[in-house]
Each structure stands twice: as structure tokens, then as C-alpha cells.
């Protein structure tokens, strides 16, 4: 990342959170968050446990709508069509069809490898075998899993190793060609080798998709992301180029967290 950093104003924007508040019942978990998400870049969300980074991530695909008592105020606009993802008139299912998510714990369905990757397409009404096969292969290749599973697509997914399962979940999320890929601590349940392969994959994937990743691991944020946002108790403390956040943070709080004096 030695090349000069482009001016932020010239970067294409993929999404923008504006004055975003989020409530679990009466508890306010996010406070007035304003943050840009740049297109085809990796943005990392870091901060101590309970700071709201996962809550923020799950706003993007309206996962909070699955549980009662959750409330959004403010907006997350998705570009280029500038639609507010959180608006009541926008169907959460439509949002989830545009943005995919990879979870903390690998969560393949107890189905075959093929059916796992094909599921997003099936939900979209794709049932032609030839199309499914083509898209499944493409997604598995993009997730760097194709060579390992091409001869056993009809095996049950839970027979894969943890790292393979997580890459399968990434393939499942990629198969539907999402506009943003959301990662919620994707390597926290994996060993260092599997973690390294997922990180490498994330770096490659930003060629084709905008990525937002929550991580507990600061080195991981430093390794994979272009931008980093540091959050603390529901607030966005600092956002900027990852180099800047890690080398010369503006906020003393961020610095304390980055250097391990706190958190």
C-alpha cells in the first residue's frame, strides 16, 4: 500500500450510513453512526466486545428484522440507486438478495456441498440444472474451494473441515453475486492455517465485490482491509485508511486500543 492514496472524495461510494441509531428494545446499541463504504474496497470494523460492530454489520442485511423489538433510526443508503436499506417500505428479503453474509461460525446447511452453494439461486427461482452447475462451479472457484471438492459435490457439507466449511459458506454467499459481502468475524472459529487462507481469499475477492468485515483480530484488520472503523460502546470513534488508523490514529482512544493498552 505504498502507492499514494487517492482522495476520498474521488472514490466511488457503495453505501453510506447516516445518523444511524439502533435499538434492541429500549437499549440503544448504535449511536449516530455516519460512515461511508467504498466500492470494491475492504472495510474492517474493529473495537472491544459489545461495541456494536456486529450489530452495525447486521443492520446492512436487516438481520435484526428476524427478532422482535428491534428498531432502526436513520439510514443506510445503497448506491448507485441510493435506496435506504432500512426504510420500512423496503422488503428485508430484497435487501438480503442484494447483500450476502458470512457468519462467525461456519454454518453450512445439512445438505450436499452442491445444494449449499446452489441454495441462494434456488431461492431466486433458478432450477435449471445447467445454470446451477455453472454458477456453483464459478462460486466454488471464487472461494478457492473448487479443486478440493469438485469430485465430491454430492457429499454432505458437514464432512468438510472447518476452514473448508467457511469457504463453502463464502461460495454460497458469492453464488448470488452480491453487491456487498458482509463478514461477521469469519475466522474466529478457525485455526491459523484456515484463517490465513480465508484472509487471502478476502484480499482476492475485493476485485469483484465490496467487503465489510467485523473482526476481533487487529492484525487481521491491518492485513486485509483498506479502511478501518474503530467503534466503542455504540459509537464510531474513528474511520479512515487502515494505514492511518494503525500508524497515526487521530483519536487517543483509538490509539489506546490499537496499541493494546485497552480492550
Amino acid at each position: 500500500m505504498a502507492e499514494p492514496k487517492p482522495d476520498l472524495d474521488t472514490l466511488p461510494l457503495k453505501a453510506q450510513a447516516s445518523a444511524l441509531d439502533f435499538y434492541y428494545g429500549d437499549f440503544q446499541a448504535l449511536k449516530k453512526i455516519d460512515m461511508p463504504i467504498y466500492e470494491k474496497r475492504v472495510t474492517a470494523l474493529i473495537g472491544p466486545s459489545g461495541c456494536g460492530k456486529s450489530t452495525f454489520l447486521r443492520c446492512f442485511n436487516r438481520m435484526h428484522d428476524l427478532y422482535p423489538g428491534n428498531r432502526y433510526v436513520g439510514e443506510i443508503s445503497l448506491h448507485p440507486d441510493n435506496v435506504n436499506l432500512l426504510d420500512k417500505s423496503v422488503d428485508p428479503i430484497e435487501v438480503r438478495m442484494r447483500l450476502s453474509m458470512v457468519f462467525q461460525k461456519p454454518n453450512p446447511f445439512p445438505k450436499t456441498i452442491f445444494e449449499n452453494v446452489a441454495y441462494g439461486l434456488r431461492v431466486r427461482g433458478v432450477n435449471r440444472r445447467a445454470i446451477l452447475e455453472e454458477k456453483v462451479e464459478e462460486a466454488l472457484r471464487a472461494a478457492a474451494l473448487w479443486n478440493e471438492v469438485k469430485d465430491r459435490l454430492q457429499d454432505m457439507a458437514f464432512n468438510l473441515s472447518g476452514g473448508q466449511q467457511q469457504r463453502l459458506c463464502i461460495a454460497r454467499a458469492l453464488a448470488t453475486e452480491p453487491e456487498i459481502l458482509l463478514f461477521d468475524e469469519p475466522t474466529s472459529a478457525l485455526d491459523p492455517i484456515a484463517t490465513a487462507s480465508i484472509e487471502e481469499l478476502i484480499t482476492e475477492l475485493k476485485q469483484r465485490v465490496t467487503i465489510l468485515i467485523v473482526t476481533h483480530n487487529m492484525q487481521q484488520a491491518a492485513r486485509v482491509s483498506d479502511f478501518t472503523a474503530y467503534m466503542y460502546i455504540g459509537e464510531l470513534v474513528e474511520f479512515g485508511w487502515t494505514d492511518d488508523i494503525f500508524i497515526k490514529p487521530k483519536n487517543p482512544q483509538t490509539e489506546a486500543y490499537i496499541t493494546g493498552r485497552f480492550g
Binding site: 442485511n61 438481520m63 428479503i93 461460525k105 454454518n107 446447511f109 441454495y119 441462494g120 454467499a173
Partner: peptide, 23 residues
């Protein structure tokens, strides 16, 4: 059925009935 399996299906854009029927 663990909630992360259910969430995985919803996250791909499944409706309630699709989640019930397929999972």
C-alpha cells in the same frame, strides 16, 4: 435447530415459508 442455520437461510434471501419448507 441452531439459530445460525436458520439465519444462514434467511441471509440468502429466503422467505419464512422457504426456510420452513427447505430447512
Amino acid at each position: 435447530i441452531p439459530s445460525h442455520i436458520r439465519e444462514g437461510a434467511y441471509a440468502l434471501g429466503a422467505t419464512k415459508w422457504q426456510v420452513v419448507q427447505h430447512h
